[in-house]
Each structure stands twice: as structure tokens, then as C-alpha cells.
Design a protein around this nucleic acid. Sequence first.
RNA 1: GUGGCUAUGGUGUAAUGGUAGCACAGAAGCUUGUGGAGCUUUUAGCACGGGUUCGAUUCCCGUUAGCCACCCCA
Length: 456
Amino acid sequence: MPKISKTKSAPKLAHKTHEAPHVQEDAGAKKHPRTPQLVRGMKDILPYETPWWDLLYARVADIGVSYGFERIETPVVEETALFARSIGKDTDIVEKEMYAITDTEGEKLVLRPENTASIVRAYINHGMLNLTQPVKLWYWGPMFRHERPQSGRYRQFHQFGFEVLGDESPIVDAELILIAYNVYKNLGINTSIQINSIGCGKCRGAYHQSLIAYYRTVRHEMCENCRRRLQKNPLRALDCKEPQCQPLKKDAPHFVDYLCEPCKEHFLSVLEYLDELELPYFLNHSLVRGLDYYNRTVFELYAAGEEEGSQSALGGGGRYDGLAEILGGRPTPACGFAQGCERAILKMKEIEALKPPADIVHIFVAQIGNQAKSKALKLFENLRAAGITVAHNLSKNGLRPQLEIANKLGVRYSLVIGQKEVQDETVIIRDMESGGQESIGFNKAANDLKKKLGLS
RNA sequence: GUGGCUAUGGUGUAAUGGUAGCACAGAAGCUUGUGGAGCUUUUAGCACGGGUUCGAUUCCCGUUAGCCACCCCA
């Protein structure tokens, strides 16, 4: 059995203790087995929600096709090293949020916390550099992070994303931002785009120094966390949400002022393209991202008017030109973004601009008596084969409860088949609105209904 | 990982220091072959452990879970 535990601290194994003692194994009398519970942070997507998921998927897939992206699906399980090297050893995600697995052979594996690294891995593994560049891929699937669950945050959650590999041109960044924006627009959700550039390996050094120099002057006003982080990753101080750190950000040096020439040029043309596309973006000098592999363009999307909220980030991404090399591939400039399905759906429901279509059932087949039951199933199959959406409930016996169900489903017609109809080889067609009924030959029913429903 | 709030049938809720009512949903029937209304019957619950007490679902503590916020992000 593979053991699943958090990377650093083993999980408390005491989670199983809400079974009552008298209910446990040794109870001589009747045992009442404890129902296994939904694991913390996990979520069942119930039938009343799946239409929302289907709708979202369809819209995203549609965007993928129309922008010339192909879908890729990578495994949920990956080598630990993939993320340690890509996301960064010292990031929260790798330090304490990964679901680590040791399999029976002692191999250290991990449930993926995000998908970009896997896609770059796949790009290298399968020699995609031999394909026409850039390679444009989109994905959709579950990710895993061991965080404390709360609104819009689960331990297993779903993301979809778009990645363009093999092109460093700023137009790629702009197109991806456009796509990210349009995904939401097509869902009826208005977003605002926050954008920044965090330069490259060359210019980052100079900026770090000036950041550290600045924060030293205000050191006593910073929160404890930031003071500690300052040496390791001064960029993160900009991202701090502590109230006491907010005013300090205002006077912090801006990365854009420290960008090297190529980076500055790149960023400026991204912005020009965005202007040309008339996308509503905001320069956010304190936008940095939690993953180490990003460089140059970084951006996040927020629901319009909710930029300040904590869980309101609907998506984010950026350029990761160095990632392929870090993972042992040839240098491959790339850019991409990811968005959260749960949050998208949360927003869709809130805004109500778009709703999944209600299932339309045309016909209900009702039966009375055993002989009729098997005939009814046959009839059901005939109708189904004829492309009619049919429902039945063969578990019910009385006609009344069956018609109640038919009524709830909102069908136009119900078919009734009983002993008499079996003998006459007929069925009764009941118009659910008028209550009118007519008898028709068993074999003619499918065709007749198609006509009545206007399907033929 | 830190803090705040909460925990009663499947769902939503009520009351109570003497072990629980209601609504919706579910099932059966009123009509042994006819829905959309109504009626009858019925299924199903105090998260777990400990303490105070003659007695705890109720009060106290702990655990667990859920929600919310921090953190982080999607």
C-alpha cells in the first residue's frame, strides 16, 4: 500500500477516532460500521453540479480549438524532483503543500500541485521541439495541494490552462492574456488583469539589491515574516498582505525601472499589444508570483471589482523561459497561464449570466404488470435508438407514481403499456398537458412520436 | 501552520437540565390502470470523547469536522 503523507510532517493518524468505542471491532453484539467520510479538502461533485462543470469544460475546449491549441493530459503522479526543481525548493507549495507518496518500491512520488512543469517535462520527453514551433497546448485536470480548505480552496482542485512553448515573442504573452481574459468573458465574467514584469536572471540581481536596500531603511516597520524573508526572496515582501507592510510597498523600487534593455523592450511591447487589443490591464508593481520559474511577464486575473479579495484570484500565469533548461531540456522560451475551475464555477453561479441547459426529456415510458415491464423496456430501447430522450422507472409498479415522475421530468408525452396493450400490441400515448390519450400500434410508436416532437 | 465562529433526520430549521418538533425531500397508500391539488401512514436526527449532575441533546472542557479570515494561491 502506498503511503501518502505531507512532505515534511507525517499526517496525524488519529483522524479515525470519531467512531464510538462501543461500535468498534470487539463489540460482541451488533456492529454498526462507521461510514467512511469524505477526506478533508476533497469534494464530491454531485449531479446537481456536474452540468456546471460540463458547461465550463465545453467553453474552455471551445476556446482551445478556436485559438489553435491542442489538448494534452499528463498524469497526476510525477517525480518529486520535477516540482522541487521547477517551482522552487523554498516555495510554500514544495515546502509544505505537496502530497508526497512513497510507492512499494520506495520511490518518492508526488501528486502534482500544478501542471506547467509536467507539460514542459512532456515537451522534453517527447521531443516536441521537433514539431512546428511554437507548440500550443491546453489542459484540464485535478491538482493537489495540502492547504487548509476554505471558500474556493480545496486540496484536490481543478485547473485548466494554456501553454505556448518555443516562442519568446511578446505577442505570445499578449495572446495568452487575451485568451485568459476571453475565457471568462465567454462565461459572462468580467475580469481585470494585473500585470508586471519580473525581469530575467540578469536584471533581477540589481533589483533585489535595491529592494533589500530599500527595505532595510524601513526594517522596523515590517512584519516579522517579511523581515525573515528579505534575504532569501525579497520579492515576496512585495506580495505581503499584512496591513503594516502595505504602506511600505508604495515607496518600494519598481522592477520595471531596473529591467535590462531586452526585458524592458519585451515588456513594453507586451503592453503595446494589450493596448491595441483594448484589454483592461493594470500595472501592478508589487505583483510577483509564488512559483520560482517565472520570469519577465507575470499576470493575474481578478473578478472585476474584487481585486483586493483573498480568494478572488481567478487565474494567473506568466513567462517561464528558463524552465525547460532547469528540467534538462534545450533552452525553450515559453509562456502560459492556469485558471481555477472551482472558482470559475463559483463565479458563474454568482453572476448567473450563463446557466447549464436543463436536461430535456421528451418521453416517459410507464408500465403496469410484469409482461408489460419487459415490453416497456423494449419500447424504451426503440425510442432511444430513434434518438428520442426517454425516461422510465421500472422499479415502480403503480401507474400513479410513474406519472408523478413523468410530471416532474416535464415530459411532453407519456407512454402507457399494460396487460391490455401487450395483448393488442399497442401503447397509449398520453399528452401530459391536455391529458388526452390515444392508442397506437406498438411498432409505430417511435415514428409517430418523432413526428409529434418534430424530430424527424 | 495561526486565529474567529459553528455542529440537531438527506436538506433547511425549532425547542428543552428529564433523550426531540416542524417543513421540504424519500417510501407506501387513499384511486387493485392515470400526473400537476389534497389527505393518511411511514422512513430518518442531537458529530465524537470526557466532566458537572440523580439525570446532559442542552452547561463546561477536549477532539474531530465545517465555515470564515490570515497565509498562500487557483
